[in-house]
C-alpha cells in the first residue's frame, strides 16, 4: 500500500528511545507507512457527539486501606539488576550527565 502519510521512522524512533541502524530504518519505514496508511481509514467514521472509551470497565476511585504491606526484599529485587555497586546494595547506572567520565 502506497500512501503519503507523514510517518518518519527516524523521528519516532528517537521519541521511543530505540536505536535503529540504517537497514532497520529502511525496512520499518516501509512497514509503518503501510500500517499508518491503513489506520487512516478511521477518518471516514463520523464520531461527532461520541464519548471516548478509555477502558472496558468503568470502575472509578479504587482505593485501599493506607497500611504498609509486605514488600519484596532488596536483595531479591537487586538480583535482577544488570550491574550493582556497594556489595550489591545499589544499582549501577551509566553516567547521567554529560562531562568528564567518572571513575
Amino acid at each position: 500500500m502506497e500512501t503519503n502519510n507523514s510517518f518518519d521512522v527516524t523521528y519516532v524512533a528517537e521519541l521511543a528511545r530505540i536505536e535503529l541502524n540504517d537497514a532497520d530504518k529502511a525496512r520499518l519505514q516501509q512497514d509503518m507507512q503501510a500500517i499508518v496508511g491503513y489506520i487512516e481509514q478511521l477518518n471516514e467514521v463520523d464520531v461527532s457527539g461520541i464519548e471516548p472509551t478509555a477502558h472496558a470497565v468503568t470502575l472509578t476511585n479504587v482505593t485501599r486501606e493506607d497500611r504498609a504491606g509486605k514488600s519484596v526484599p532488596r536483595e531479591t529485587m537487586l538480583a535482577n539488576a544488570p550491574a550493582t555497586v556497594n556489595d550489591d546494595e545499589l544499582i549501577k547506572v551509566p553516567q547521567v550527565l554529560p562531562g568528564e567520565g567518572m571513575a
Binding site: Q95, V96, L97, P98
Partner: peptide
C-alpha cells in the same frame, strides 16, 4: 537499568 539486558557499551544513560 533496574533489570533485564543492558547494552554493554554506552556513552551515557540516554544512550544506554
Amino acid at each position: 537499568i533496574r533489570y533485564g539486558a543492558r547494552a554493554p557499551e554506552s556513552k551515557d544513560l540516554v544512550d544506554s
